[in-house]
């Protein structure tokens, strides 16, 4: 369920990225920030929040252990690298 929620939100963020609603809006927020630019800056911030949630909720478990569980018989590259 956690995975589904995160990937659903990522897809949602990609949909929100196509902001047709501010396409021709030249409003200056706070008197200096074009609303279309502010919207996409918020998208960047939302992306950071979403990826923070992703590492909290769906961080792949056991990757470090798997990375160190080497099988030398399968692996000539490793031998060469360690020479």
């Amino acid at each position: 369920m956690r995975s589904f929620c995160i990937w659903f939100l990522v897809a949602g963020l990609l949909v929100l990225h196509q902001d047709n609603w501010f396409w021709t809006d030249s409003t200056l927020v706070f008197g200096f920030m074009p609303v279309g630019l502010l919207y996409h800056a918020v998208i960047s911030f939302a992306a950071a929040c979403l990826w923070f949630a992703a590492i909290l909720l769906i961080w792949p478990s056991g990757v470090d252990q798997a990375a160190s569980s080497d099988d030398p018989s399968q692996n000539k590259n490793q031998e060469a690298a360690e020479t």
Binding site: L14, H17, L37, I43, S44, A48
Partner: peptide
């Protein structure tokens, strides 16, 4: 300003992905 949405905010999502 469209260059930000086209190149930057999209990269913020996709690069981390």
């Amino acid at each position: 300003i469209g260059v930000y949405g086209m190149l930057a905010s999209s990269s913020g999502i996709i690069h981390s992905l």
